[in-house]
Amino acid sequence: MPSVAVEPAAAFTVPVPRGRGRQDWRSALFVAPYLLVFVAMLVVPLAMGMWLSTTKGDLFGTERWVGLANFVRLFGDAIFLKAVANTFYFVLLTVPFLTLAGLGLALVLNRQERWAAVLRTIFFASTVLSVTVVTLVWRLVFLPDGGLLGVTAEALGKTPIAFLNDERLAMPAIAVTTIWWCIGLPMVLFLAALQQVPRDLYEAAALDNASRWTTLTRITLPAIKRTFFLVIIIEVILQFQLFGQPQLMTLGGPNNSTRPIVLFIYEAGWRQWELGYAAAAAQVLFAMILIAAMVQYRLSSGKEAA
């Protein structure tokens, strides 16, 4: 067999050159601009906020390190505890309804016809409005003297109710406002999930003579289970951060009944100028949201694995 130049060339011992390195610090220039802003606007304030939460001082005075005193004070502060309770109450009022109504709307509106598209447009429209427009609109609905509900009540011969001035009704009124504002997001998330369900599953079910109810409970709902939990967590995180609606509609009243944690932070920081105290409350909220975010991360990374 004719020999070819394949056999390891034994005599060929050149100093081994290093391969052209791809690790290059100049490549980091692409990420540097963002990282600069990231550090200045997120990392530093976060660390500073944590440090602030262990200090006491005012806007002009020097901060003094007080350890965990702010946190101890928070958990003895009836208004803060009320704010925490209000926040949970609000989440309970809005999140289950937003999730179930969003799912319901998606199930009914997941079709090609024109009327369904029009209705989808209507339900998502309010999402693009800013909180100040939304609250302005709804104040003119809830206003006892000349508001839409007041006028309606008078037309029916009843006494108008001052929803936003009633301790029991103010929070539900804010919840209604929020649901009106936010219903679009859960709906489109569910719609996206429904469109991911493989069509041949429905064809197989039809061949198996499944009823519409069976198709819904055995195929559709199990297929979007993950989205269901995802929506719940996204909404919990969003609604936990309730701020603008009560700040603009009730200022937290009457009798603190609509003051959520974020409004508490805002008022501690920018009304009383107790920055350390406000920062401590912010850390508590951060911890709560972090727990929810961790659950969400688990769910969404699990989705990729599936």
């Binding site: 606007m41 997120l42 530093v44 304030p45 976060l46 500073m48 906020g49 602030l52 995180i237 951060q241 974020v262 932070i265 920081g269 920055l275 406000a278 920062a279 912010a282 850390q283 909220l285 951060f286 949201i289």
Partner: peptide, 8 residues
Amino acid sequence: PEQAVIIA
């Protein structure tokens, strides 16, 4: 979240 950094 925004709340954790906004004060600082």
